[in-house]
Design a protein around this nucleic acid. Structure first.
Length: 420
RNA sequence: GGAGAAGUACCCAAGAGGUCGAAGGGGCUCCCCUGCUAAGGGAGUAGGAGGUGAUGAAUCUCGCCCGGGUUCAAAUCCCGGCUUCUCCGCCA
């Protein structure tokens, strides 16, 4: 959520910044409503001050056993007026909140302007994609050929967009997860293992609700949502808290399963591990001081990339343009892994600085040395999507005979060096 | 799932409709005293959100878990919710 005061006092700047995103946002309406809100507050507060004074007077009169009935009658009327004005004010404030919740974060000034992913800017590449001496197979064929991924049975027990991992496949997925968690915890991230279901306030805090409810799985009969990413529970750990400045930056990593309805993506990536209703991910989350957050984004991105360097899988890093940057983010790097079957790089991590956008929604502050409080900046990035990493391993390390060689760094976790 | 109890500031806690703009402890900060330490004495210690104002001073409004309600007036009475604890049931 943007700062209401900032929006109304810098309306031209805000309008301009938002024009680089796709969509239209009700900035003028917000400013107008805010004016109404302020004049109502002035009016009710004047009445309330009077009411408070009169209440004291009534109490004093009663103590002296004097007659207070005239004042009481007067205050009865004032009370009704206050109630009316408060109801009006509530209506305006909830409308204002609704509108503010619908406005995305302002892109950082150095984010390239552009409508869609064609305007994203490649920042760097690592390793060169392997040249195969045979026709490389997609990971779903490799997985089925090796009897380690089973989609027909996943469809039977659950439905489309689910996967069963079996034997060496299950072990590989778990090995990738452990490698990631070990790497990040050795690198200063504190491991968190949170609930996979959260309440509505948490979903509001990180910005999944109210705008993207149809993309989420809700638990029927309970006020719980299945988390779409560990970002939600982990960022909300500190919801409604004031952190000490010396604690910052706080760095967490977390493995969770992630659940996405994938509404609107029918027909895309229907085969394989790329787009699932349930997938595994290790997430990195940071709480940073405002003046450090862009530096922290650089190190967070680098920390996520480290996994692919360890696994020796080719990837590139892309700076998303304004139109492709997520709703809550002011700046995002995507890490894209090389997938031979797609013959292109495919997103495997998205590393974002949210500025104070989530912190304002979730009310996460820190107390500076001078005693004042301010919103922290929140950041997160996949470190990495586990299923997509497994897919990338199967594809990039496949052999002509249909087997897969396990990357060196992973062998101590798998306990085997090849799947045949 | 059933029954009961409870939620007040950093912690403990008083508080039963107007004197609560929240007692009292503990802790913390500062000062005094003593050669040092301990002990003792004194002072300070609700943060937060929002209005007017210049992002100052000042001032007002809202804050006793959250949301409603009753009343001229609510920490206090009523209703709903959440959380915690105890007992029972169930269960990994």
């Amino acid at each position: 959520m943007l700062d209401l005061r900032f929006v109304t006092e810098n309306i031209d700047y805000v309008r301009d910044a938002l024009s680089k995103r796709n969509g239209k946002y009700p900035i003028e309406e917000i400013a107008a409503l805010n004016e109404e809100r302020r004049s109502l507050i002035r009016e009710t507060e004047r009445l309330k001050a009077k009411k408070n004074a009169s209440s004291d007077e009534i109490a004093a009169l009663k103590r002296r056993e004097a007659d207070a009935s005239a004042l009481i009658a007067e205050m009865k009327l004032a009370g009704e007026e206050i109630k009316e004005l408060d109801a009006k004010l509530n209506a305006i404030e909830s409308k204002l909140g609704e509108l503010l919740y619908s406005v995305p974060n302002l892109p950082a000034p150095n984010v390239p302007a552009g409508k869609d992913d064609r305007y994203n800017v490649e920042i760097r590449r690592s390793l060169t994609p392997r040249v195969f001496g045979f026709e490389p197979k997609p990971h779903w064929d490799i997985g089925e050929g090796l009897n380690v991924l089973d989609w027909p049975r996943a469809a039977k027990i659950s439905g489309a967009r689910f996967t069963v991992y079996k034997g060496a496949g299950a072990r590989l997925e778990r090995a990738v997860c452990n490698l990631m968690l070990d790497t990040h915890t050795q690198n200063g991230y504190t491991e968190i293992f949170p609930p996979f279901m959260v309440n509505r306030d948490s979903m509001l805090g990180t910005g999944q609700l109210p705008k993207f409810e149809e993309d989420m799985f809700r638990v029927e009969g309970a006020n719980y949502f299945l988390i779409p990413t560990a970002e939600v529970p982990v960022t909300n750990l500190h919801r409604n808290e004031i952190l000490g400045e010396t604690e910052l930056p706080i760095k967490y990593c977390a493995y969770t399963a992630c659940f996405r309805a994938e509404a609107g993506s029918a027909g895309r990536d229907t085969r394989g591990l790329i787009r699932q209703h349930q997938f595994n991910k290790v997430e990195l989350v940071k709480f940073a001081r405002p003046d450090d957050s862009f530096g922290e984004l650089e190190t967070l991105t680098n920390d996520a990339e480290r996994i692919l360097r360890i696994l020796e899988i080719p990837y590139r890093v892309v700076l998303l343009c304004t139109g492709d940057t997520g709703f809550s983010s002011c700046m995002t790097y995507d890490i894209e892994v090389w997938m031979p079957s797609y013959n292109r790089y495919v997103e495997i991590s998205s590393c974002s600085n949210f500025g104070d956008f989530q912190a304002r929604r979730a009310n996460i502050k820190f107390r500076a040395a001078n005693g004042k409080t301010a919103y922290v900046h929140t950041l997160n990035g996949s470190g990495l999507a586990i299923g997509r990493t497994t897919a990338a391993i199967l594809e990039n390390f496949q052999n002509a005979d249909g087997g897969v060689t396990i990357p060196d760094a992973l062998r101590k976790y798998t306990g085997f060096s090849i799947i045949k």
